[in-house]
Computed example of a mutant assay.
Amino acid sequence: MSERASGERYRVPAVMAANAILEAIARAPDGMTHTELVRELELSKSSAHNLLSTLESLGWVRRDPRGRAYRLGGGLVRLGAFAVRQVDALALAMERTHEIAGEHHLTVIAAQPLGRGDVEVVAVAFPGDTHVGISLGTRYSWFDGAVGKVLLSLESQAAAEQLVRERARQIPAHTERTLTEPDALLADVEHVRSVGYGASIGEYRSNNAVAVPVRDADGRLAAVLIAIGFPDQLTRDAIPSIGHTLRDVADAITAECGGGALGERKVQAQNVAGTAAKEHSR
């Protein structure tokens, strides 16, 4: 029996019914009455009454004194606050590396921020026998391929341009394809802002990579998720799909931590002219 089937087998009906009531009330802007809940959830009147009375005693629902509708209660706000504090974005990113690696047959790593423009690998998941080797403790900074582009994109546009132009002569040419020319690098950084992920094709090592930032509930950088593959594993054509996958995972982690959509992907027309119609072309 699968783990999922086993979990479903041992579910407690009363708990599932209580959860269904909470979710139904949450979806109703004006709350729901006892009668409406019985009809929508196909519960008996007595079961719905007992469940609502129990939830009300816990402070998880409240009855509107001006009518008969039930709404969510303050007890859930307290529990939600505890949940947000206990969910760690970095830990969630580390957990997701194995799932992504297995599904897409790529080496997937999670790196934690050490300071401005500097991250360190804290988790590595390999897809199988043929994979790109990465060691725990490996560090990436502003001018290191896909990760570097992501880190630069987290700076303001003015700060990123100042960094790149002031350090132009210090940008390391990791390979013959490394973007060391400031305008070209800044164009790629702007592309990261528009699509939500950074990519490199043979720019840091001989392999290809895609990276995304993962933010916590307060919008701070909590981790960087990176997928790496040999050119025949992570092809140029596959990069947009992998980028979107990692971006969706990062957004889901942020949401699970209690945060909202990433403002960095709000695109201004003047920043994406010429890039919105195509994915990374380098």
Rank of each mutant, 00 (worst) to 15 (best):
D188V: 07
E42Q: 08
A81R: 10
V77K: 08
W60P: 05
V147K: 01
L221P: 08
P127M: 00
A159Y: 10
G80Y: 13
A255S: 08
G31P: 02
D118E: 10
L246E: 10
M16Y: 04
R78Q: 13
T138H: 15
P240K: 01
P240D: 01
G263N: 11
Q233I: 10
I242R: 05
L163F: 10
I171Y: 01
A17S: 14
L79T: 06
V121E: 05
A91G: 06
V164P: 00
E279A: 07
I109H: 01
R265H: 03
E95I: 13
R39W: 00
E176W: 05
D88Y: 03
A146D: 07
R215K: 14
R193D: 12
A48Y: 04
G80H: 14
P240E: 02
H191Q: 08
L106K: 04
A217Q: 09
L92Y: 10
A211Q: 01
A238P: 05
E181R: 13
V84L: 07
L22T: 03
H104M: 02
A255M: 07
E40G: 05
N271T: 07
R193L: 04
K45T: 13
R220T: 11
V189R: 06
G128N: 02
I21L: 11
F143K: 12
P240M: 11
D251S: 14
I242D: 02
R177Q: 11
F82T: 14
S57R: 07
S194P: 03
A83V: 15
S141N: 05
V119W: 05
R165E: 09
G260C: 08
E56S: 13
V272W: 12
R165F: 03
Q270A: 12
D88I: 07
L52F: 05
Y70F: 14
E42C: 09
G73V: 00
L76K: 07
P172K: 03
D30T: 15
A159D: 15
T254I: 08
A18R: 14
A209V: 02
A28V: 09
R66H: 12
A20E: 13
V61L: 00
Q170Y: 07
R62H: 12
A48I: 13
G198L: 05
A48L: 07
L136V: 05
T178N: 03
L90C: 05
V195Q: 05
I239L: 12
V224L: 08
A110S: 15
T33Q: 14
A28E: 11
D232Y: 12
S241C: 06
A184Q: 11
I201R: 00
A238R: 11
L37M: 13
H105N: 06
L76Y: 04
L186G: 07
W60Q: 10
E40L: 14
R265N: 04
G259E: 06
M32F: 09
R11L: 06
L246T: 09
A69R: 02
E8G: 01
M1Q: 08
K266E: 12
V195M: 08
L55E: 11
S241D: 12
A199P: 06
G74A: 13
T175Y: 01
D30R: 15
L234E: 04
S53E: 09
R116V: 14
Q170D: 12
Q233E: 07
E23Y: 15
Q170V: 08
E256D: 10
T33F: 11
R4N: 13
H98L: 04
W142H: 15
K149C: 02
V122P: 06
S200W: 01
V15S: 13
